[in-house]
Design a protein around this nucleic acid. Structure first.
Lengths: 254, 254
DNA sequence: TTTAAACCTTTACGTTGCGTGAAGGTCAAT
DNA sequence: ATTGACCTTCACGCAACGTAAAGGTTTAAA
């Protein structure tokens, strides 16, 4: 089946302007241009547009989507199952928001009381997600287009010994961090050693390292409950402590 | 509890820039300005910000949110239970998308086949929602700020006799439409009578009527599966037929 | 056959919701 | 008294299109 801009637009629920824009920025080129200069799309483009819309739904920026779907190593099947995971995540977040609104209603009716902080639960998660998206873009801008793809490759191509090493590193990090936390001084020797170990651990996953990126990740550890829970498991406040240590280590504040 | 920009920003997960912008456009003014010119927010503002974020989550534009939350007749409790409804709707839509991605995976693995149209299920619903938002904005721009609120009031304040009348109207509409559909001519007398009845029915819900708005709604009947299912129940194609009749009746095409 | 409606094209300016400096004042702690 | 983390007001930048404007193409009806 072949489609003109409007046909494809109607099919997919996007405007003709959007399709022209996607052509313009090189994210979705038509299969061919007919003799009158009309854009003609085919089966490949239909499937690609679907992928694009999935990524968009997940809040990914178009330039990032472009890199992903146009990458020669793009694996549509893998992308789809990741979409599934992410959409399920998104639903969990939505459930939090629904819980929030229901709690707020109960609170307004005087049935329960609610702290200010609780009133924004479910919103924050979204912010972390946005940061992750933005983050990927920044790396891309600073270090070129292939870094993010390479990052994934790096994990996949890790040998057994590398895997062992990284595991040992993360154990070292956790014990050092636990000891450092007891000193209470994020600028102290132990804390700075922990930050250093964290950097080493990080370089297993990133090809390029930068202070900003490191500091950014540290902040994420505090913002994202999953990470906070992981680091705070034994001693609450550890995630924050690690962040402060990294701030000092990298010389960054924000 | 009192908050400065950064405190409130951290609490709610928004940037300080956002809070200043919300002040600038008049959507969320601080409770007071202290002697140094700092913005100070109180309890009222915390709750209002929560409301704003709920509306934002639902994809409502800021100028519309402004109208809503600043309206003297704004009912926070009612708004919250509407948020709940909408969030539940949103979750249903997400479920559709998840079903879509799972079907696509199955299709790629050759376990099922999938029509192009099916590949975009779950996305389209969102488009309708966006149209509704845009739509409300257009009405607001054209007829002033109170029309949308009044529209809700109108439904709530309907007397029993009015309710009976509107019920009768919708029955008339359906029978006339069914007959008109058999003629196959949306410009014909019967079809135009149906369009007229539809207009009368509409004026029970809208205080202000316009050809554009009417035509817009007609298009929605075709785009939104819930409406299509309703009108096509006995004779498939009726929703489209009604749209065409309304296009002719109103003299609109798009 | 012509003519109107419904397509398509490119070009180009407008919009929303902020991000991101710059330049400078305020406050708390050392 | 100085440093660093706050705060302020401009003011420009940006993404992802929306929305004409001006004009060529296709289709179907008169």
């Amino acid at each position: 089946m072949e489609y003109t801009v409007q046909k494809l637009g109607l099919l997919a629920g996007v405007s003709t302007r959007t399709l022209r824009y996607y052509d313009e920025i090189g994210i979705l080129k038509p299969a061919r241009i007919n003799s009158s200069g009309y854009r003609i799309y085919g089966q490949t483009e239909v499937d690609k547009l679907q992928q694009i819309l999935f990524y968009k739904e997940l809040g990914i920026h178009l330039d990032k989507i472009k890199d992903i779907v146009n990458s020669p190593s793009f694996d549509a099947a893998a992308a789809l199952s990741e979409h599934r995971e992410q959409l399920l995540d998104k639903r969990l977040q939505l459930d939090k928001l629904i819980a929030n609104v229901e709690k707020t209603i109960a609170s307004n009716e005087g049935r329960i009381t609610m702290k200010d902080k609780e009133k924004f639960e479910g919103f924050k998660q979204k912010m972390v997600q946005d940061n992750e998206n933005k983050y990927g873009k920044e790396i891309r801008e600073k270090y070129g287009d292939d870094v993010v793809n390479k990052s994934n490759e790096k994990v996949l191509n890790m040998t057994q010994s590398e895997h062992d090493e990284v595991t040992k590193l993360s154990v070292d990090l956790l014990t050092t961090l636990a000891e450092a936390f007891k000193t209470g001084d994020p600028a102290g020797k132990l804390a700075q050693k922990a930050a250093e170990l964290h950097k080493q651990w990080l370089t297993f996953y990133w090809n390029e390292y930068s202070n900003e990126a490191h500091a950014g990740l540290a902040q994420m550890y505090v913002d994202d409950e999953r990470f906070t829970a992981y680091y705070d498991k034994d001693q609450p406040g550890t995630a924050k402590f690690l962040r402060d240590a990294i701030y000092i280590y990298t010389g960054m504040k924000q």
